[in-house]
Nucleic acid binder design. Sequence first.
RNA 1: GGCCCGUUCGUCUAUCGGUUAGGACAUCUGGUUUUCAACCAGGCAAGAGGGGUUCGACUCCCCUACGGGCUGCCA
Length: 472
Amino acid sequence: MVSERLTSMSRPVVTRFAPSPTGYLHIGGGRTALFNWLYARGRGGKFLLRIEDTDRERSTPEATAAILRGLTWLGLDWDGDPISQFERRDRHAEVAHEMLRRGTAYKCFSSQEEIAAFREASKASYAVFRSPWRDVAAENHPDLPYVIRMKAPQSGQSEIKDEVQGSVIIQNDTLDDMICLRSDGTPTYMLAVVVDDHDMGVTHVIRGDDHLNNAARQQMIYDAMGWEIPVWAHIPLIHGPDGKKLSKRHGATGVEEYQAMGYPAAGMRNYLTRLGWAHGDAEIFSTTEALAMFDLAGIGRAPARLDFKKLENTCGHHMAAMEDAALLHELVAFMQVAGLPALTDAQKDLMSRGLYCVKDRAKTFHELLEKAHFMLVSRPIVADEASAKSLDSVSRGILNSLTPQLQNASWTKADLEQILTNAAAENGIGFGKLAAPLRAALAGRSATPSVYDMMLVIGQTETITRLNDATV
RNA sequence: GGCCCGUUCGUCUAUCGGUUAGGACAUCUGGUUUUCAACCAGGCAAGAGGGGUUCGACUCCCCUACGGGCUGCCA
């Protein structure tokens, strides 16, 4: 592992996330953003956003909005306004021309047809294209459209000092003179990233390892302009459960889909942080703890597979640990995204009083809602198939006999406990046999919080009314 | 084809030349229990294959296999 360069350690960290606005925020992109965010924020640095919208055909404002929504949901905040790469095209062109002046780039008049013909002819050898214009003096240039190509070294090697991949050596003769400025005057990606990262003061480039090879060429631009090369950290991509590249076939690929599936953002952050990164045995941790622990050295080099079981488990821990108010707030947002009807004020009120007894039994918001059903239904309560079985004539009779005692109860947990255990004993049944019909009557479900908690939450009047409903 | 990266239990991973290869999720067995969730105790389970280097390799080097990436006037 290469240690961080001194120059970079002496200035504040600036990272960035640079998505192409061609669709929703991919879960892999979300993790890349998270790593950048953790690294910068954990060090008091800046986390910037750049929208790589130079591909005018595929870029849409809707996609940009979706990406920002995804980041916001994940809790990743960025500094300043997102930067549009497209709007910086003049600056990119300016740098290309500066390279021309410096002699580190040249005008190439080869047409796309000529290049295509070269590729066709050298299909077998896969030779790299060598422009015949590399060393042609300006006075011999024709009056034709041209591109500006990087005058890259053709021998020797380039070293990428990568914090994750270690030292990576690329032979310079395998690289062609990449195009920096197209014949229509627009910049290519390779030029634009370097110029933007430099101008934005990015100190650490943390991105997918599909860019590892690109780093060698990008370094050449930094060198050509005399700019300082940032610290590289190329992280492996996320794969589906079967080890293949994550695709729609695997289910959810978009961050917002995970929100709709009901995973709490804190759990998602925790899980995603641990996916491809480790710090000893740390598994369940808060974002504050993650910020303190996160480092580049802990990032693994192999692609990690998404494991929904572990995601759920992680989310369960966070769900239980969340403050009631925050949990309710996130639940409301979730219901909106999932297209569920909004909670009424009465429901919210009940929920804020009863969340304590459901949050540690759920791993997703869908489960939370299911467990909270007793707070959300309105009478008459219809017992579902499983719970209806426990409402036979015998148990109805027992429930009915409970009513007078409940009417006189002080409605504390201790009091209710005494009434119910006595009732079970008097009827010669185990407590479980009594709890089942109570669940059916109070919630219409067989999987619910403790019967005591339900009674406490909905209150005396409502409890008795529901029992009466069930016994008629 | 060329170049680059990767490969520890089913999964996420720890290990940075000497460990009974550890933890977590999942799974299995028992316990607890008021259903669900949880909890407690325990079990199963791993260094891709082959060569080196070394007193000693999961760890360092090479080869092979498999997976991934790059090889655009896409990003």
